[in-house]
Amino acid sequence: MSSVQININGEVKDLEVEPWTTLLDALRDKLALTGTKKGCDHGQCGACTVLADGKRINSCLTLAVMHDGAKLQTIEGLADGDDLHPVQRAFIKHDAFQCGYCTPGQICSAVGLIKEGKAKTDEEIRELMSGNLCRCGAYPNIVAALKEVMNK
């Protein structure tokens, strides 16, 4: 077992993990933060996207031990109390999901994308959101939600 200290959503958490525990499994199974979803578990679907030191990553393809001392943000940490994050509000307004399974990953990825500031056009949003798959096909509404937040 390794001792790991991670700042998650502003709270410092101490946890004991096996070296082979992925960050995704640590979040879900050790910290009960089940908002981050396990989709493919191979970095192909983006459902497990979280923000590590402000950058979006696939939490399924990294180990919890590698994040000792890091600052993480998950879907649970985006809202300010009952005040939803602008991207969360925009997803609701634009009906940017159906079943909702990919949504936490989509939203974390969108927050990362907006911070990166590289996407300007619809085409660029699609390209830079390509790491998040949505089997319900809510893509046009996801693009609309992102555009609204980006244009504010």
């Binding site: 983006g46 990553i57 696939n58 393809l61 990825s109 990166e116 390509s130 790491g131």
Partner: peptide, 9 residues
């Protein structure tokens, strides 16, 4: 190549 998430890692 890859996706923004993967390229960040």
């Amino acid at each position: 190549g890859a996706s923004p998430q993967l390229r960040n890692m």
